[in-house]
């Protein structure tokens, strides 16, 4: 269910690496917890993000959830489709529902994240 080649954070963000560019979204588990997403608020292009810095919020009807940057770097793109169709986060959280792209500053941040196996184990721990 979770893509094999992504990295995962304890706050349920995923990041997919393509050279020095990372694409960031939230996991299927996270979208399930949040319920129907109605709005996504993200930083402007060019914003510099630290590791685990709050980068914006995702809103459902009755909840607001912070999204934290799984790596440090500079925001280069925001998924404009989410403005019109925030439900993409619910429907396709791991691909079309991506949130931002970031130019990674420090690749060593990735070592602080989990592999898919580790993340699945992490979720088992939560669900118990």
């Amino acid at each position: 269910m979770f893509p094999k080649d992504y990295y995962y954070s304890k706050d349920h963000e995923w990041i997919k690496i393509d050279g020095d560019i990372g694409t960031i979204g939230i996991t299927d588990f996270a979208q399930n917890q949040l319920g129907d997403v109605v709005y996504v608020e993200m930083p402007d292009k060019g914003t510099q993000l630290e590791f685990h810095q709050s980068i914006g919020v995702i809103e459902s009807v009755k909840a607001v959830s912070d999204v934290y940057s799984p790596v440090s770097g500079e925001v280069i793109e925001f998924n404009e489709k989410l403005n019109e169709s925030p439900e993409l986060i619910n429907q396709k959280p791991h691909d079309e529902g991506w949130i931002i792209r970031i130019k990674i500053k420090d690749e060593s941040d990735l070592q602080k994240l989990m592999s898919v196996d580790e993340y699945e184990k992490f979720l088992e721990g939560i669900e118990e």
Binding site: V38, Y39, E59, S60, V61, K62, A63, V64
Partner: peptide
């Protein structure tokens, strides 16, 4: 648009 409000967003 209740997520703007105090009972959900609290201090923010």
């Amino acid at each position: 648009l209740s997520t703007r409000e105090q009972h959900i967003r609290r201090e923010r």
